[in-house]
């Protein structure tokens, strides 16, 4: 079922997501069969496939919400089901997943990115609040902080969820069909931002989408792995990367500076 594994030029980059001979079935209907794939540090991985091909299922398996029937899934080298450093994962949900009438401000939503297990029963610190302000500023939504989330445009909401995902400074950013229901122009600027982040920051991306048209030439032509109707495309951010990579700006402060250059974030 599977052709190819991770990118050959893995080199010094640590695996972030490892799928080893993973199979999963709902009842008796197999959804994923013998899938092998590795996403390494600073890869941009795109998972595509038609509706019903198992994209969402695979995403749930990867983040540890489901357990594979066979095979093994590791996150940052640890088994996904037992992976504890959850703050290393940023998650951007499908737009349709939230109730537009929910009474929450942009600030409240962005802060909720910090509400994972490592802050269970802890109060937010001043530093936490500052990070949320930084994330909003970086994505150009600082002036919307007090607005109700449902009153924003689709593109603005998308940035709010991106800010929420980035507030923990994650090593892995998972985007689940982030552009469904968003107009073409907004999508364009969203992908511009995503590509920029991939090139300049130490973040590994896993994006789920039913088509790859919008990313165009950014991804290599042939899928790096195929399993059933699921396809993985990968691009590694070669341009600035060597194994040292200590000079990579990996902080929200850096996003913030970039956001102040209007050419980069529209």
């Amino acid at each position: 079922m599977t052709t190819g594994a991770g990118p050959a030029d893995a080199g010094c980059h640590q695996p972030v997501i490892e799928l080893e001979d993973v199979s999963f079935a709902y009842e008796r209907r197999p959804v994923i069969e013998h899938l092998n794939f590795t996403v390494r540090e600073r890869d941009f991985a795109l998972l595509t496939g038609p509706n019903g091909a198992g994209k969402t299922t695979l995403l749930k398996l990867i983040v540890g919400l489901l357990e594979p029937d066979a095979g093994e899934i590791r996150l940052f080298g640890e088994p996904a089901r037992r992976f504890r450093r959850r703050e290393r994962i940023g998650y951007v949900p499908q737009k349709s997943a939230f109730n537009p009438l929910f009474p929450a401000t942009v600030r409240e939503v962005v802060l909720s990115g910090l509400y994972g297990r490592h802050r269970l029963f802890r109060r937010l610190t001043k530093e936490d609040y500052r990070r949320a302000e930084d994330a909003m500023h970086a994505l150009g939504i600082a002036d919307l902080a007090g607005k109700r989330i449902g009153m924003l445009s689709g593109g603005q909401q998308q940035r709010v969820f991106l800010a929420r995902a980035l507030v923990n400074n994650p090593g892995l950013l998972i985007l689940d069909e982030p552009t469904v229901g968003i107009d073409a122009e907004t999508q364009e600027s969203f992908y511009h931002l995503i590509r920029h982040m991939h090139r300049h920051h130490n973040i590994t991306f896993l994006m789920v989408s039913h088509d790859r048209d919008r990313l165009g030439d950014y991804l290599e032509g042939e899928p790096a792995a195929v399993a059933g109707r699921l396809k993985f495309y990968v691009r590694h951010s070669h341009d600035r990367t060597d194994c040292g990579e200590t000079d990579l700006t990996h902080s929200l402060r850096a996003y913030r500076r970039e956001a102040d250059e209007p050419a980069l974030v529209r």
């Binding site: 919400l65 992976f83 959850r86 703050e87 909720s112 509400y115 297990r117 490592h118 998972i174």
Partner: peptide, 8 residues
């Protein structure tokens, strides 16, 4: 979903 991904 985000709560679950965050390990709550």
């Amino acid at each position: 979903d985000a709560a679950a991904v965050g390990g709550l």
